[in-house]
Design a binder for these strands. Sequence first.
DNA 1: CGTTTATGATAGCATTACTATCATATTTTA
DNA 2: TAAAATATGATAGTAATGCTATCATAAACG
Lengths: 230, 230
Amino acid sequence: MATLAFKLQESLFLRNPDSTELGQKIIKNSVRLIDKLGFEDFTFKKLADEIQSTEASVYRYFENKHRLLLYLIDWYWTWLEYKIDYATNNIRDPKEKLAICLKLLTEEKKQDVYSEVMDGKALQRIVMAEFEKTYLTKQVDSDNKDGVFLPYKAVCKRIAEIIKEVNPAFAFPSTLASTLILSINHQLYYAEHLPSLTDIKFNPQKHYDKLFEFMQVLTFNALNTRYHAE
Amino acid sequence: MATLAFKLQESLFLRNPDSTELGQKIIKNSVRLIDKLGFEDFTFKKLADEIQSTEASVYRYFENKHRLLLYLIDWYWTWLEYKIDYATNNIRDPKEKLAICLKLLTEEKKQDVYSEVMDGKALQRIVMAEFEKTYLTKQVDSDNKDGVFLPYKAVCKRIAEIIKEVNPAFAFPSTLASTLILSINHQLYYAEHLPSLTDIKFNPQKHYDKLFEFMQVLTFNALNTRYHAE
DNA sequence: CGTTTATGATAGCATTACTATCATATTTTA
DNA sequence: TAAAATATGATAGTAATGCTATCATAAACG
């Protein structure tokens, strides 16, 4: 078993979906269904029907659909942190590290080797459209105590640390990091659905690069420096 | 009647809440209740009980709770645009205009003269916690056709235009404007609930100013310029 | 080989998100 | 001022949602 590749917080689930076939079907198909229906219209009933199982069986894995969404979102940020670690591992120049982070954050995600179960592109769309719904709730404080936001915080922290390396005098490394990630998650959604809110034109061939360009300008200007790859 | 002060899109409601006593009670108490319960747990039944009316009566004003939330959010952005217009009206220096916008966006909202019905502080909290839920849905395109996002777009456009005045060569005025607003709406929520995501400490005496400071740094650096009020 | 464990099948229940109908009170207007 | 239009309340009903509980059975495990 264990084809989901990352070990996530125990508090996210009742039974580890990574450990069984049904669990993996739940994950794989919840990604498909949430991407298709949106989180509001997604239900355990619909998911159960889709995988020829029952509502009761799904409830044995996740307390509710909110926790299931958190599982997917946490998977995404854990994956991203892994990619950042891997790609910046032996880079010394902090500016280059920061540029690599921005690249990884803004680029189109692919079906990765890390998991046969997870559809990277669909997961990226889910993060764009649903991530903020995980913490903009009245249970945010109790969820936070359960540690369900740790993977996202880890990515922010990692980027904030690189920002500090680039400019130790900068007073807002974490604020800048979370602002960048937030904006990255929204701009392409705007490009597609609310185009007047952004200068980035919807164009899957080019918009990832445009987004990267904006983030570089914003970041390196905020830090009173430049970065140009050779 | 007409104590809600702003005329909003007809498409938002079935019956104009501004035109009747019950309508105004609906608005006033939905602000209170959504602020208290969060949008997910808010229902027309609970609202109706609160104002000693019936579910059916509330449904005569709004198609569903999503449209009611849009009404509140649109009210907020219309209010903000009005304040921006008023405050930048006879300012010539575009940098100063931009700084004024950032101030208005980041400052604590007060109970305004513009309406006896609307609680400005509660509304600001609702915008922080619920605004993104209005457009991160599968109906975003049809909602957008109904014009329900126009007030928000107007604020973005207005700020983007001032950005263009400050630096006509800047390639991302709208992207910057929407990024700023997005971040402004989130940072104080982070300060309160997910403090590791920001350098701004939760402190209602100071955090509005800290937020303003960050936004100024980010904005004027992005535009390769500075601004210092005299 | 017996026992734990996972799943399925089914039932049930309170709440949500509406829609519909009818009575009555109030306002408008002819 | 009477008739008509409109607003609200009262009540009922319905499909879907978000669960919880129970029991049977099949598979895995020791």
